[in-house]
Simulated scan of single mutants.
Amino acid sequence: MLFTAMQLVGGLILSVGWIPQIVQIIRTRSVADLNLKAYLLMLLGILLMEAYAVNLAAQGVGLAFLITNSLSLAVVTTVVLLIIRYRSRGQQ
Rank of each mutant, 00 (worst) to 15 (best):
V23C: 07
G17F: 08
L43Y: 06
I26E: 13
M42Q: 05
I25C: 01
L48S: 14
S30A: 15
Q21S: 04
N35F: 05
V16P: 00
P20K: 03
E50N: 09
L40N: 14
L48Y: 06
Q24S: 07
L14Y: 00
I13W: 12
R29S: 08
I22M: 03
V23H: 11
Y52D: 13
S15K: 03
E50S: 09
I22V: 10
K37F: 10
L47I: 10
D33E: 06
L34S: 08
L36K: 10
P20M: 08
L44D: 00
T28H: 06
Q21I: 04
I13Q: 12
G17E: 04
S15L: 13
R27M: 15
V23Q: 07
S30L: 02
A51Q: 15
T28K: 14
S30R: 13
L47C: 06
R27D: 14
I19P: 03
V31W: 00
D33A: 15
A51M: 15
G45V: 06
I26T: 12
L47W: 06
A32C: 07
I22W: 06
I25L: 10
L41Q: 13
L34V: 10
S30T: 03
V16M: 09
A53P: 01
E50R: 01
D33Q: 15
I46S: 04
L36R: 09
L14T: 01
L36C: 02
P20A: 00
V23P: 00
Q21R: 10
Y52C: 12
V16H: 02
L14I: 03
I26W: 12
G45I: 05
S15H: 04
A51L: 08
Y52F: 15
K37W: 05
L34E: 08
V31M: 02
L36M: 06
K37C: 05
Y52R: 07
I25A: 08
G17Q: 03
L41H: 12
M49P: 02
R27T: 08
Q24P: 00
L43R: 01
Y52E: 15
M49Q: 15
I25F: 10
P20V: 00
E50L: 13
V16D: 01
V23N: 12
Q21M: 13
I13A: 15
S30V: 03
A51I: 12
Q21N: 02
L48P: 02
I25V: 12
Q21K: 09
Y39M: 10
I22F: 00
M42H: 12
A32T: 14
V31L: 00
I13N: 09
E50H: 13
A53M: 02
R27P: 01
N35H: 09
T28Y: 11
I13S: 10
E50A: 06
P20H: 02
D33R: 11
I13P: 00
L36T: 07
A51E: 11
I22Q: 02
L14F: 04
D33W: 00
W18F: 14
L48D: 04
N35S: 15
L47E: 10
I25E: 04
A32M: 06
I22L: 07
E50Q: 13
P20S: 03
I46G: 07
I19Y: 11
I26C: 05
Y52A: 07
L47D: 06
L47Q: 05
I25W: 06
S15Y: 03
S30P: 01
L48I: 13
L40S: 09
L36P: 01
Q24G: 08
K37L: 10
L14S: 12
R27Y: 13
W18G: 11
I13M: 14
S30Q: 11
M42Y: 02
R27C: 03
L40M: 13
